[in-house]
Amino acid sequence: MSYLYNNGFLHVLTNARRHLSNLGLVEFGYFPNKPFILTYDNTTLNFSFLISGEGNYQINGQRVFVKAPCVLVQKPGDHCKYGPLKKGKWEEFYFIYEPNELCRYSSSNILQSDEMFWPIHNFFAVENCILALTDAIDSNQPADVIEQLCETLLVTSKMPKQVDHQDKVISSIRDLAMSIKQDCHQPLNFWTLAEQMGLSYSSFRRSWIMLYGVSPKTYQMDVRVTKAANLLISTDMPVSVIAEQVGYFDPAYFSTLFKKRYALSPALYRKSYDATLPSEYLGPTRPSEEDTYIEREQQYYR
């Protein structure tokens, strides 16, 4: 993967939130060419996506060799020491959560209690998520959207092993998934689409799950509901109009699906956020002065 940016960046959300509830994201950043080893006593919940490179990773005296692509985890209370091999460098994308988020991620099975790291099997999907996140940063999307994308990235990092993307069937499925993201309100008959690809629906569904970790119907629903959530917190459009824009013409059915995903009705979800989104919502994004160094305030040193 080529560098996401020529220079690294640091983005702090702590003082930029305007909503009443959040997912606990404090900071995220990117090292395109990290040459140094970090040693510190951790107080937060951190996830580091090792995109390229290799090195040593030590948590509470337990040491392992890690190689990209993988995800490194640092929990509150961990003594950490890690970095690339001597005279080596690695590419790292990371984000930091408040310590109380450990309970939520553990209970959701995204994070196992004894997990120090895990390999990324479907790097294609992870790469797409990272690029979507960096696009959201560049376009000054609300902090709420950034938090959702970070959580999606974590879930995606545990998807099944990727398959051969040169395969004609897989290429067709990828094109279809992309069209759903771009135009999620369109009605689709997955049985007919499978037949057009020369597949039984069961084979089509199995291939889709290998790529994206969920069935095609669930994938489409997730894209629609996620877009609806973004519209709810970034516009003042009526819920019924938003439902139609994402492909649901029955507001009651849309509300049922939305509540199943977010545990709140669309109206209550919107009320949990401020009605207006000021331009400074995300706070400043500061590029690094050097390719391998990110200046951080003392409170954020790790």
Rank of each mutant, 00 (worst) to 15 (best):
L23S: 07
S52W: 00
S179Y: 02
S255M: 04
S2P: 15
F31S: 05
S52F: 03
N100T: 14
V66T: 09
K217R: 06
P160G: 11
Y57F: 14
S48H: 15
L149C: 04
K34C: 09
K168R: 09
S106A: 11
D135C: 14
Q220Y: 02
N109L: 08
A132M: 11
T218W: 00
I130M: 14
V126E: 09
P76F: 13
E289Q: 15
V214N: 12
N7R: 14
M116F: 09
C103A: 15
F93L: 15
A132T: 11
P35K: 00
F249A: 04
I209P: 06
E147A: 08
S139Y: 14
A267Q: 07
M210G: 13
S48M: 13
G88Y: 12
L10A: 02
P160L: 13
P119I: 07
W191P: 07
Y57N: 06
Y293M: 09
I233E: 04
A68L: 14
Y82M: 10
P32N: 05
F124Y: 13
H121V: 06
S240C: 06
N7A: 07
K227D: 05
L45C: 07
S171T: 13
R205T: 13
K34Y: 12
D167L: 02
L149S: 05
V239N: 02
V145N: 06
G83D: 08
S106P: 03
P69K: 09
P69E: 12
A229N: 03
E101L: 10
K259W: 02
I137C: 15
I37M: 01
K89I: 15
G83N: 09
G283R: 04
C129I: 07
L25P: 02
P119R: 09
G247M: 02
M1P: 15
K86Q: 15
V126D: 10
